[in-house]
């Protein structure tokens, strides 16, 4: 993860902003943990073996737009994602979109 994004994440997640590697490791751990919650349905590292879409390596713009639309309930007919996305902040959803977009498809 880039230093700037880490600092951004640290800011939104409420961790102390620091350039020391320890703080970076903590921020990485936070995004890793957030993303791990997606694997239960979208598969390990976003590689889905089933009906849910694979999100690893997807377009970052598409992922962001979808997640933010779920959060605002602007995705009619959606099953669980409209219920789950409301549990995260916009910043967290953007960070998740960037995380999964950066993985190998």
């Amino acid at each position: 993860m880039g230093r700037m994004r880490a600092a951004f994440l640290a800011a939104i997640i409420g961790m102390p902003i620091a350039t020391a590697s320890g703080a970076l490791a903590e921020t990485d751990a936070t995004i890793t943990l957030l993303a791990a919650g997606c694997a239960n349905c979208h598969g390990p590292d976003g590689h889905s073996p089933g009906a849910m879409p694979t999100i690893a390596g997807a377009s970052v713009d598409v992922l962001k737009a979808k997640l933010l639309a779920f959060r605002k309930d602007e995705a009619p007919g959606t099953t669980v994602m409209v219920r789950l996305a409301k549990g995260f902040s916009e910043e967290e959803l953007i960070a998740l979109a960037e995380h999964f977009a950066s993985l190998k498809p």
């Binding site: 694997a39 239960n40 979208h42 598969g43 390990p44 889905s48 073996p49 089933g50 009906a51």
Partner: peptide
């Protein structure tokens, strides 16, 4: 769709937990 997602969930969480 929720029936299909249920099956998808089982496949995904099994892979996540015990590996493929």
């Amino acid at each position: 769709r929720e029936a299909d997602y249920g099956a998808g969930w089982y496949a995904a969480i099994s892979a996540d937990t015990w590996g493929a």
